[in-house]
Computed example of a mutant assay.
Amino acid sequence: MDKFKEKLAALRDEVNAATLRCEESEAEVKRLKDDNLNKEHEITSLKNKLTFTETELEKAESKMAEAKLNLDEGETTKTVGEGLARKVSLLETELDSAERNLRETTEKLRQMDIKAEHFERKVQQLENERDTYERKVEDLTTKYNGIKIELEQTLASLEDL
């Protein structure tokens, strides 16, 4: 009887441990989903910034083209053109940086997706384990109750003798 109680306690401990692992995994999946959402927002932000930078680049390029046409007008126009050229150079540098950040963020997002899928599979596995343990506990409880009833009947029949 004591062995049975010990086994039952061990099974309960295993179920509790499995439930704890499941809850931890679910929390990790939620955190990863939140991270994934943040990365998606960051990608959207970077795309908007890239679009804005491209627009600014187009504006700067058109201004630079105008400045080149007006180059004959004098030194003042030359200074403006140089300023615009520097601006274009800075915008191109920013564009390169934004594109690099976008690639890095996309790679990180892909890696996060892979991790999220891994953890989702792990959660599913743990849920399956939990279900298996729950079925085992139910089976053992049923067997225990059956044996208990049988024992009571046997004791009652022994008392009748």
Rank of each mutant, 00 (worst) to 15 (best):
D2F: 14
F4P: 02
E6N: 15
A10S: 05
L11I: 01
D13N: 13
V15Y: 06
N16V: 12
A18S: 13
T19N: 11
R21H: 06
E23I: 02
S25I: 06
S25G: 15
A27V: 05
E28C: 04
E28K: 06
E28Y: 01
V29S: 11
K30A: 15
L32H: 02
N36Y: 13
L37V: 01
L37M: 10
N38Y: 11
H41D: 09
S45K: 13
K47D: 03
L50W: 00
T51A: 07
T51M: 05
F52P: 02
E54S: 07
E56N: 08
A60E: 01
M64G: 03
E66H: 13
A67Y: 01
L69H: 04
N70S: 06
D72G: 04
G74L: 00
E75K: 00
T79F: 01
A85G: 03
K87M: 07
V88I: 05
V88R: 04
S89N: 07
L91G: 03
E92T: 09
S97P: 00
A98L: 15
E104H: 11
E107Q: 10
E107L: 05
E107S: 10
L109C: 03
L109P: 02
K115G: 08
F119N: 10
E120K: 15
R121A: 08
R121K: 14
K122S: 06
Q124T: 14
E129F: 05
E129K: 10
E134W: 11
E134V: 10
E134D: 09
E134Q: 12
E138K: 13
Q153S: 13
Q153H: 15
T154V: 09
L155H: 07
E159V: 01
